[in-house]
Design a protein around this nucleic acid. Sequence first.
DNA 1: CGCCCCATGTAAGACGTTACATGATTGA
DNA 2: TCAATCATGTAACGTCTTACATGGGGCG
Lengths: 197, 197
Amino acid sequence: MKAAVISKLGYAILGLLQQQPSSGYALRKIFASTAMTTYSDSPGAIYPALRRLEQQGLIHGSIEESSGLRRRRIFRMTPHGLAALKKWIKRPLVRDDVIRGLDEVMLRFAFSQQAVGMPGSVRLLKSLLIELTSYLPELRGQLTAHQEAMPISGRLALESGVRSYECLLEWTKYALASYVRQEKMWQERKRKGATKS
Amino acid sequence: MKAAVISKLGYAILGLLQQQPSSGYALRKIFASTAMTTYSDSPGAIYPALRRLEQQGLIHGSIEESSGLRRRRIFRMTPHGLAALKKWIKRPLVRDDVIRGLDEVMLRFAFSQQAVGMPGSVRLLKSLLIELTSYLPELRGQLTAHQEAMPISGRLALESGVRSYECLLEWTKYALASYVRQEKMWQERKRKGATKS
DNA sequence: CGCCCCATGTAAGACGTTACATGATTGA
DNA sequence: TCAATCATGTAACGTCTTACATGGGGCG
């Protein structure tokens, strides 16, 4: 069995289709207009990506004739697609994900709640926390080690990297805290509901 | 005349060669071991990139026989290469650079001081400041607008984006301030030197 | 009628990834 | 002598970019 290889754009599409079935054009608009602008909205990227996903049996497009407009293909996620999405989100975080693929990690997190539930989101955050706390000192070390040999702009650029990771670490803690809060509220509601009934 | 198209990796190489002539292998080690790990250290990326740059006349490699090891090609930047690097760094910042190509902007800044001097670095920072201050409110607007419709993890992911831009804005101000400080010191030294002589 | 938006697609080309190939030198 | 490191390269493959093509529908 071939390990289904799916591009980042592919996962972004899968995640969006999980939220609701959409046409290629609707996806393009999402990529073009929302904060997901990091992903390509060009037809030359999206339509081939959709075809690949369909050939892998992860999504399925059906022609919708109802509206008077040109035929539109609405894509839906298949059970296989959902499984692939879950697997991707649950994949253990490694150092390399944090260094070279942070945007992909954030994408996984963004879709995590719907796909694997709150415990899954929390797991992802916790391993992100671990990776960040192990990587940051190393990066700071590079800064102090090389700062003599670098022009000011080089040092500042490196500092910007350190800062952005520090910022992300803060966010991770904040996100975890808000999940804890959420869970407490949920428990509370459950308790109240139990006493009432 | 063809507009020399240079990839991000190409510019990264140009910038490093500006600092000092290096072999392909040395460049690979830099990409593999320093904070520049975002750029590929695979030979399949670097050697073709070097060849392209050489064909465009931006760098020139000369075989160094001296050491007993296998022949090594040391690449040096040509005047054309320096011109291309400067042009790239001076290129006006647009919204899109900030949204889709922040890492490239940081790369430009990192090399700016050596290539175009402190005034060039400051110019880059100032336009980054402008773009960020115009983009951030828009991004925050998206957050408030869509937050009802998103799962918590989606909202948090978007918040992480907002925060990282806020963090970058802070850094930009900090970097600008340290250039101002630097300039003051420089003026100071000049004044003292003048009184002494 | 011309123009813009909806909506889908294809083709050429550039670039990076992965994997393989080569070969010399150093050290266990 | 076997493995690791230095050092350069090539080939197949996948994906994105850019640009073009097509065609219906609404609007001034």
